[in-house]
Each structure stands twice: as structure tokens, then as C-alpha cells.
Design a binder for these strands. Structure first.
Lengths: 221, 221
DNA sequence: CTAGGTAACGAACGCTGTTCGTGTCAAACG
DNA sequence: CGTTTGACACGAACAGCGTTCGTTACCTAG
């Protein structure tokens, strides 16, 4: 009936919708305004359309976030040089970084066996490095499970500090104060070791070393 | 103006609201009907009241879930006998079990340094066991970080299978089929080791052993 | 120039978390 | 015994959400 104010033909060359631009737009919104801002309506508005239009390319919000996760994992670079352990550490650190940079994406990875193209590429490289380290097939298979789980978990933890309004330092000092006010009779170890609990240092790298050393010292079966 | 159909005095002795009954009701709903059903309105209805009434005892939905997490962690028993390693494994398995039994609670734990009373009790017992194992303070402090992270992550992964309509076996066979259809040139290791990736066995216990062995073989600094 | 198939859309449904102002009751006080 | 008080509970409403439905506008093939 009523013609729209500007006919679609006259519009300034709107980029056509596609799964890719939707995913990219989602990542932009996530990075700029956080997880709460990542709504279907918001993505649609950014693309100058209505929410309904997105559902041609994306099954639902979860599907969108899964796709966004895999897009983020495409950024993980291939570690080039060093021993297999060094390259494995670099790979895991990079994967953690890539996932933690976008709030909420790591949580998606924790909820499902990875099946995205780029997630599987990371997994494949992990397996190659473990085999290079001389592990047998079963141990290597179980190890990637553990390593991927740790990467996702570390990223989930990191992303909270990366994105929340509150900084990491604030959160730590707040926790430190909480621990300091605990009754020593109910929480003797925390009270005694409080200084060590919050001792600074590169925990992330130490965690990776623990995992690698543990895997090497724990044959499956 | 209009008198309500039954005056409040005449009602059949409605149990008074309190933070505790709200948290307990929340856990019941979560266990019975899943995370999506855990809405403020649903909790209120279960308690025969309106949503607004809950906000006297609970700051918001996140606050409720945090309280629910700590309530769930109260169920973690104290391991009695065995070596320190056996007791540590039992403690971690129990904590994982407690968190994974209630969908979505593990995700809460991943998002914050634990400060709940019962979470701290678990943490305190972990520390005691690590010290019993002869670790120095710094290593023990960093180790609880890693162990708690793993517990939360393992619980988050578990809870998906525990609660989703889809069973764990279904998810695995689906992933297996996906892996089987991968191009061997792009994913050589996954293709070659697919059988080992899905080999059954007690991965959970192996993971715990890896962590413990790794911690023992990786002094901080 | 017309027909057809598909991508895009506007509007709506049934929810959600949270807030505000009002009502109601039991206990404390004069 | 009558009144005041203050805390708790509640109804209603707001703004927003994910998702679906039926219709429209468009490009392409005939």
C-alpha cells in the first residue's frame, strides 16, 4: 500500500546480508559494548535492518555465538619455532587470548565438544605437537581434552577481567580483603597462606607447565 | 479499596519469605526444570508470591545464583581416609559433582574469585591437603588456583550432559561422525587419531592425576 | 514484459529482570 | 485499649528480549 519513504533501490548501496557480516558485526558489538549489548535486535540495527532478517542466516542467538567463537579462533596463529613444548605453550596461550578477548565466547566453548572448523584446526595442531613429544595415541587423545578444557576455562576467567567494568586488580584486592577478614579457626589454611594465594607471578605459564609436565608423567592406563 | 478474596490473615499459614527458602526453591526449580526455567517470576510463583517480593532478600538474579552455588557447595563431604592424594582426588571429584548436578552453577564459579563461605571451605581443605603433600606455600597457592579452575570447568562441561535433553552418548557419537567426515589433508591428526580421541575410560580421574603429578613436578619459580 | 522464488521486512507474541508506590500486618508505644 | 510505626509483601508497570508469522519487494529466468 504505502510506499516506504525511500525506496530500497534508492538506498545508498546497503551491503547485502550474509552469515559472515552478521558474525563480524556481532563480534564488533561484543568488543565495543559487551555481552549484554549483544542482542539480535542490536545486531540487526547495526546492519540497518530488523531482527527477523537475521534468522535467514542464523538459527538463533546460540548459533550466532557459536559462529562468533569459531571466527575468533581463526585468529590463532601458527607457532613457528622452538621445541614442541614451547610451541604448545604458545598455541595454548594464543588460543586463550583469542577467546578471552571477546566476553562470553569462552563460555560457549565450555558447553560443547568443539566442532567448528577453526576450533578443530587448533585441536589438530595440539595433537601434532603432543605426538611430536612422543606421547602414545591414547594419552595424546585424553590430553587434548584436558588442554582444551583448560584453555576454555582460563579464557572464561580472563574475559571477566578483560571486559567487566571492574579491573582485575580491583577484584583481587577485594578478594584479598575478604580473605583477610575470615575467622582463622574456620579457615586456618587460607588465613595462614593468604600472602601466597595472592602472590603475583606468571600463573598462566606455570599452569601450562603443570599440565605439560603432568601429561608427560601420567601415561593413560 | 476492594478487599482481596481471602484476607492474608486467613491464608493457610504461608511460610515466611527468607533468603534461605528463596535459594532452596531456586535449586529445586533448577534441578527439576533446568536453567531456562529459573526465572525470578518462577521462583516467586513457587513461593506463592510476586517477583517483587524476592528483591527484599536477593539483590538480583546473579546474586541469587551465586547464593545457590554456595548452597550447592555445602554438600561437598569431607574425605576421611587414604593418602593425601586420594583425599584430594575425592575432594575435587565431590566438588565437581556438586556443581555439575545443577545446570549453570559452574558457570557462575568461573566468573569470579570464590568468596562464598562454602567455596572457601573447599579451598581451605584443598590447601591443607597440598601442604600435607609437602608443597611450599607459593606452589600450593598457585596450585589451588589451577585446581579450582579445573573443578569449575569440568563441572561446567559435565552439567551440559547432565541436564540437556540430549544425552552424553548422543553428543559424542554426533561429534564422532563430524570428525569422521573431516578432510584428511586439513585435519591429518584428528583423522589419524580419531579412535583415540573418543576412546572410553575414566578421563576425569586421569585428568586429576595429571594435575597432581604436574604440580609435584613443577615448583613455582 | 511477465512469472516465480527468495531474501527482507513490519508487527506481534509471550516472555524476561527490575522498580515504584501502595497496601497490609504485627508489634511497640502512649 | 487505641494508635502509631516500620518492615515486609504485593500489584502493576516499564523497557527490553528472542523468536515467529504472513506479507512485501526485489532480482532473475523465461
Amino acid at each position: 500500500m504505502t510506499t516506504p519513504p525511500t525506496s530500497r533501490r534508492a538506498r545508498p548501496a546497503k551491503a547485502p546480508l550474509s552469515r559472515d557480516v552478521i558474525v563480524r558485526t556481532g563480534l564488533e558489538i561484543l568488543d565495543r559494548d559487551g555481552l549484554d549489548a549483544l542482542t539480535m535486535r542490536r545486531v540487526a540495527k547495526e546492519l540497518d535492518t530488523g531482527p527477523a532478517s537475521l534468522y535467514v542466516y542464523v538459527a538463533n542467538r546460540d548459533d550466532l555465538m557459536t559462529a562468533m567463537l569459531d571466527a575468533a579462533l581463526a585468529q590463532v596463529p601458527v607457532a613457528a619455532e622452538g621445541t614442541w613444548q614451547e610451541r604448545l605453550r604458545a598455541l595454548m596461550a594464543a588460543a586463550t587470548e583469542a577467546m578471552s578477548r571477546h566476553e562470553g565466547l569462552a563460555a560457549v566453548a565450555l558447553g560443547a565438544i568443539p566442532t567448528g572448523d577453526n576450533a578443530l584446526l587448533v585441536l589438530d595442531r595440539m595433537l601434532a605437537l603432543l605426538k611430536e613429544g612422543g606421547l602414545d595415541d591414547t594419552t595424546a587423545g585424553w590430553a587434548v581434552d584436558l588442554l582444551f578444557l583448560h584453555v576454555a576455562a582460563a579464557a572464561a576467567e580472563q574475559s571477566v577481567y578483560n571486559t567487566k567494568d571492574i579491573g582485575k586488580v580491583d577484584a583481587i584486592t577485594a578478594a584479598d580483603r575478604r580473605y583477610a577478614s575470615l575467622p582463622a579457626d574456620e579457615y586456618p589454611m587460607i588465613t595462614a597462606l593468604r600472602a601466597s594465594l595472592f602472590a603475583h607471578g606468571d600463573r598462566g605459564t606455570w599452569h601450562l607447565n603443570v599440565l605439560i609436565n603432568g601429561i608427560l608423567h601420567t601415561p593413560a592406563r
